[in-house]
Design a protein around this nucleic acid. Sequence first.
DNA 1: CATCGGTCTTGTCACTGACAAGATGCCCGC
DNA 2: GCGGGCATCTTGTCAGTGACAAGACCGATG
Lengths: 185, 185
Amino acid sequence: MPYHHGDLRRALLDTALEAIGEQGPAAVSLREVARRAGVSHAAPTHHFRDKTALLTAIAAEGWSLLADALREAAASGGDFADLGVAYVVFATSHPAHFAVMRAPGLTRADDPELEAAMERARTELRSGVERFEAGSTRDADTTALAAWSLVHGLATLILEGAVPLKTDADITEVARAVTARLRPP
Amino acid sequence: MPYHHGDLRRALLDTALEAIGEQGPAAVSLREVARRAGVSHAAPTHHFRDKTALLTAIAAEGWSLLADALREAAASGGDFADLGVAYVVFATSHPAHFAVMRAPGLTRADDPELEAAMERARTELRSGVERFEAGSTRDADTTALAAWSLVHGLATLILEGAVPLKTDADITEVARAVTARLRPP
DNA sequence: CATCGGTCTTGTCACTGACAAGATGCCCGC
DNA sequence: GCGGGCATCTTGTCAGTGACAAGACCGATG
């Protein structure tokens, strides 16, 4: 092992995600992440100012990945329901990211990178809503907020185990059925 | 101050809620709660086995209060939209409770009291959905899940500041508009 | 009024996050 | 090809934390 790690920043992010997947975001310690990554307890300092900065970076990465997934779903000609499905599928396939994204207080909400990533995801979802609302005279902001609330809440409930789901097909099916409960214009 | 506090358990809950309101659920320490309550650092042990137990009790109390609010909204002849409004109003008027209720990993999800309180809230909301679905042939489970997701997600987004709201009237209005986006049977 | 059991205290331990100061080795100019 | 500069990583340290143990206190029960 060389003295200089090579890409410790990425390694710390991956190691943290692994630990979060096992123990949840609140129970993870910086020192444990450092141990798992094979570096000293103070090594993370040079890549993340403090624990909050690490978790904030993970949250930002999560929102960015979510935005990518939403964009892809929209690009492949999907309607609004497909965006909803993509949202829920992201949450279930990236549980550690999603847990950090919705953990109150663990991240620095005013971080520019985090805000930008959230804004990007919001925009992607918003564009799907606008297609959904084509030709409507309803308040698009309200519809967007309803859609955002619906998929965010659904993903949360599924991850909390409130909805027993076996396969990915189940998830897709439930997500599609739930988004269908949104009233079209 | 008497040696025996009187009702230290309630005092600890209240003090913790106060601290959570200021710093968020993740940043609160048992020792600080004990200090604020004017007792020694080990006093909470006899009322809550550990930190998780305290937060779990707060979450259970939150779900219970939410169930009460939903029941009251239903009792006063409200339709489903009124239940949605009550849900969001609860979240904004009890932010500390709600933050703990949706904090992943800080509570013991399999606690019997917590499970019972959640189930009670779920049942109250479910009964409102059933009135909403009267005469429908749709899958009521899906509608209930959609409704639950919608109000839970909306409350979360409002508390995260994603929706700028000034007054309680604003909150009621937005909650009513968003729940109206649910498709009736 | 004695004792018993729950309540609260003091004392302690390993662990954590943050900071400081020193060791290491890669990169750049010469 | 080589020497200095500097980001990277290390060891060392400190106050604060959660959890446990053992003892002090006191009210209720007999």
